[in-house]
Simulated assay, not measured.
Amino acid sequence: MEPTSALADADWASHRPAVFGAAYRILGTVAEAEDVTQEVWLRAAAADLSEVRDLRAWLVTVAARTSYNVLKSARVRRESYVGPWLPEPLLTGPDVATQVLVDESVGTAMLVVMERLTPAERVALVLHDVFDFPFARIAEVLGGTPAASRKLASRARARIAQVKERPRASRAEMERVLGAFKAAAEAGDMAGLVALLDPGAVYVGDGGGRVAAARRPVLGAGPIALLAVRLVKIRRPDAIRIVEVNGYPALATYRAGHLLWLDTAEITDGRITELRRLANPEKLARIGHI
């Protein structure tokens, strides 16, 4: 829990979403983003801010610099990660206790693609495209020149262009398709699942070596439907609910109140084109149980 102070009471509450939002977009994990946010508060509480004209920019700059250092070391750990790596989900929506800045850049699909960027590209993209930082200030964070920072952001933008241009289903359509997928999975309806999946659909599972999960992507509607039915039979869930994570509907699957896995999906023309199943219990801990 963050200490209380004049800064916390007056300014911190309004700027905390931006600080956490910058850290989460750069790091892709809630736990590390919360650690960075705590460190930023401690630095701000101990600093003389009387000469700071833009407190939000100052706080986000500290968050970005700290996150950049954390990400460079985290990349080494992620290289030895067992199986595919998915970002730690972030509960969003009107009912969450702590509000965060939500836009397309915090979506799971975007965070997955951003994981392929270098740490410097990721910082440059987040600071410029999300927080509208000038490249001169980004250069201070990265220890380079404004021109170099501009190139980093441009390269990053080119890499994520495909995700940004992808047509996205409306919230109502996503909830309809996910609800139908839920019903078909619970009923063991192979034909129903296949009908909901695009023929070229891709399934990615993240168990992190902690629980059984596909170590490689599964391709095609038939194989994905078969895997979904088998997992339901093996794990025997007793509840599946639609929740909101990272700004979009997702499916949370439970057994005896314990969260087994979380499904996020990309949906086009009423069919699932990509299904991402997060089962690593370390990443699910903050979503909670029922």
Score class of each variant (00 low, 15 high):
Arg75Trp: 01
Gly83His: 06
Val60Ala: 11
Arg276Gln: 05
Val100Ile: 04
Ala156Leu: 03
Asp189Met: 03
Ile242Ser: 03
Ala180His: 07
Ser149Pro: 08
Tyr203Glu: 03
Ala97His: 01
Arg77Trp: 10
Gly192Phe: 00
Ala187Leu: 03
Met174Phe: 10
Thr4Phe: 14
Gly179Phe: 09
Met190Ser: 13
Leu231Lys: 07
Ala156Cys: 06
Lys151Gln: 12
Trp261Asp: 09
Leu251Glu: 00
Met174Leu: 15
Asp263His: 02
Ser154Thr: 13
Ser105Ile: 05
Val62His: 13
Gly192Asn: 10
Gly222Tyr: 09
Ala153Cys: 00
Gly220Phe: 04
Thr118Met: 06
Ala153Gln: 09
Asp132Trp: 15
Arg75Ala: 14
Arg241Trp: 05
Met110Leu: 14
Ser80Asp: 02
Ser154Glu: 15
Pro249Leu: 00
Ser5Ala: 06
Asp48Asn: 11
Ala13Val: 14
Ile242Gly: 00
Leu262Gln: 08
Leu127Ala: 09
Val130Ile: 13
Val96Phe: 01
Ala18Val: 08
Asn280Phe: 08
Val40Asp: 07
Gly83Ala: 09
Arg276Phe: 02
Tyr81Ile: 11
Arg236Asn: 12
Ser50Met: 05
Val204Leu: 09
Gln38Ser: 14
Asp198Gly: 12
Leu275Asp: 11
Leu59Met: 12
Glu282Arg: 14
Pro3Ser: 11
Thr92Tyr: 02
Tyr81Lys: 11
Val141Gly: 08
Tyr24Phe: 15
Arg241Ser: 00
Leu49Asn: 01
Gln162Lys: 10
Val112Asp: 06
Leu152Arg: 08
Asp11Pro: 01
Ala33Arg: 01
Gly83Gln: 07
Asn246Trp: 07
Asp35Lys: 12
Leu49Ala: 00
Thr253Trp: 09
Glu88Ile: 03
Gly21Trp: 01
Trp85Thr: 14
Phe181Asp: 12
Gly83Pro: 01
Arg286Ile: 08
Thr108Arg: 07
Val30Asn: 00
Glu88Ser: 01
Lys164Pro: 00
Leu197Asn: 03
Thr66Asn: 10
Ala10Glu: 15
Glu79Ala: 15
Leu117Ile: 02
Ser170Lys: 02
Ile287Tyr: 00
Leu193Pro: 04
Val245Asn: 01
Ala97Lys: 04
Ala187Tyr: 07
Gly192Asp: 04
Ala195Thr: 05
Thr29Phe: 06
Ala180Trp: 07
Ser73Val: 09
Ala147Glu: 15
Ser80Val: 05
Leu101Gly: 11
Leu231Cys: 05
